[in-house]
Amino acid sequence: MLNYMIGEVYRVLHKKSLYLFIVGFLILSVGAIVVAQAAGMDAEDLLGGMEAIFTMIPTIIGGYLFSAFYSDDLNSKNLPTVIGYGITRPVIVISKLLLVTIFAGIFCAVLPIFLMGVLVVLGVAQPGVILDIAMKGMYALSLKSLLEIVGFSAVAAIVVFGFQRSTFGVVSYLMLALGVVTQIASTILNLKFVTDIIPGLSNYLLTNITMNVLMAMMGIGQLLTYCIQFGLYIAVATVLAIVAFKAKELEF
């Protein structure tokens, strides 16, 4: 498993687009701050506006990482090689999720520091108590983004391995990240005949659970409960992805 993960890290680090994507995202973020500052937004507004940047992470950064780790193998038809080398399907599914988690985790850990640095350099905020509070808030948002990336990747992996079509996988991920699936699922789960049978099911949608985790970190709700719910999501999705992968003949 470690060999496979090391190989995958080597491969993704040799993708030029990885660096272009990250640098592009950071430049856009800085650009947004500069424009907002020029438009006369004060420090408080700007700090509040940071949330918009974090809401884009699951779609843009998560989407890229998902594509890099899950789709490249399918597009290049490399999966048969890996399996022929004796790497089992469960190892592939679990490794990919771990790698997305690690890469997204690093990005989400660095982004708040970077943004704060930009705010300080631009003179929008000065080191002090307000900045410390803002930093904590950003890390909470960053963690929420990370959980969404991991959760959406785990769920979309079922489609990737079940159909072995990269387009299906990426579209599924983006529909999850853009909230399309959540909206549809919420609508269905809030229908009267559904709520009559099992009320409150929409609370268990992945997006709501990650929001609950964020709120719990702010002191509202039981963090452990929501973490367990999130963990179950990942576990069930991973098992389903493995089952789907095993059931489907490899595409050459």
């Binding site: 080597y10 491969r11 040799h14 993708k15 687009s17 038809k77």
Partner: peptide, 19 residues
């Protein structure tokens, strides 16, 4: 089947690591 964006050395290095 290899990764299109990697050159032959990089593709073999990738496989070396996996194997």
């Amino acid at each position: 089947a290899f990764f299109p964006y990697l050159n032959p050395r990089q593709n073999l290095k990738y496989l070396c690591r996996i194997k």
